[in-house]
């Protein structure tokens, strides 16, 4: 914790391009804005953590109440493609930063443009997925055993016939009733509520990232980005990679497990 402070300046002397612009060196030799952004990112990490924790603790409760089973509705293929798109965009993002550091004007524009495009593709995929989920239905089946024990299960409508036959077999003598089909929205089940809120907030962050990158791209098109202020690209990039990072967690915890 307590290392010498004033000696570090030469060591890390503002490589973010601020040396030449005349900003005084900082105590840690780190750029103020970058330090602030990293602090903000760790705060954001806890924001998503609270949402993920909410999803995870509600999951068993959702199932016990006869809510839809996530695996019936969350297709792995589409999500894998979305994960691929975001990973790809992280690559183009880091290439844009690399280009900025080397003052490669064509590269900056090309890779920033590519990142924005991939971000928009991700958002398009998410809109498609939300739309698809919203139009699907599930049925809550209530199984009352002869001894009075009650079990509930949420079954996707497209599985209903097959599953009902199986349930009859597994629960001989039980009465089985089913609810009217319900759409998978954010109000019809805990799965819907927690899933849409979590992925919706992630999508919002992607959208904000796209806006931020677009601003940087406009600056680049005007020739206002160079190796002297590559920090502008780096900052947007850090935020963008963080959003990708959140998707890495969501992909595993929500879609795969």
């Amino acid at each position: 914790m307590a290392q010498a402070v004033a000696h570090d300046h030469g060591e890390h002397g503002a490589p973010g391009g601020h040396g030449p612009t005349g900003h005084p060196p900082t105590s840690l030799g780190l750029n103020n804005r970058k330090l602030g952004l990293w602090t903000f990112i760790s705060s954001e990490a806890l924001f998503f953590t609270a949402l993920v924790a909410t999803y995870l603790v509600m999951k068993p409760r959702n199932l016990a109440l006869g809510g839809p089973r996530p695996e019936d509705f969350l297709g792995i293929t589409l999500t894998a493609i979305l994960a691929f798109i975001l990973l790809m965009s992280s690559l183009t993002m880091v290439l844009a930063h690399h280009a900025a550091e080397h003052n490669d004007q064509r590269g900056i524009r090309l890779w920033l443009g590519a990142t924005i495009l991939l971000g928009l593709m991700f958002l398009g995929g998410q809109v498609y997925e939300f739309n698809k989920l919203w139009s699907e239905h599930f049925v809550t089946v209530t199984i009352t055993e002869p001894d009075g024990k009650i079990v509930r299960e949420g079954i996707a409508e497209h599985h209903l016939d097959a599953e009902l036959a199986e349930l009859q077999e597994h629960h001989p003598g039980a009465t089985i009733t089913q609810s009217a089909p319900k759409a998978v929205t954010w109000t019809t089940s805990l799965f819907g509520s927690t899933f849409f809120v979590l992925t919706g907030f992630h999508g919002t962050h992607v959208a904000i990232g796209v806006v931020w990158l677009t601003v940087v791209l406009i600056m680049a098109l005007r020739g206002a980005i160079s190796s002297r202020n590559s920090l502008t690209v780096e900052m947007a990039g850090l935020y963008w990679h963080f959003v990708d990072l959140v998707w890495v967690a969501i992909f595993t915890l929500i879609y795969l497990i």
């Binding site: 914790m1 307590a2 290392q3 010498a4 402070v5 004033a6 900082t26 105590s27 840690l28 780190l30 103020n32 330090l35 602030g36 602090t39 903000f40 705060s43």
Partner: peptide, 19 residues
């Protein structure tokens, strides 16, 4: 708070070590 954190970490006078 982000402002305080960056201020304290980065804007200390020469010789103002953490301790």
């Amino acid at each position: 708070s982000i402002n305080f954190i960056v201020t304290v970490l980065n804007l200390r006078a020469p010789g103002m070590k953490f301790n």
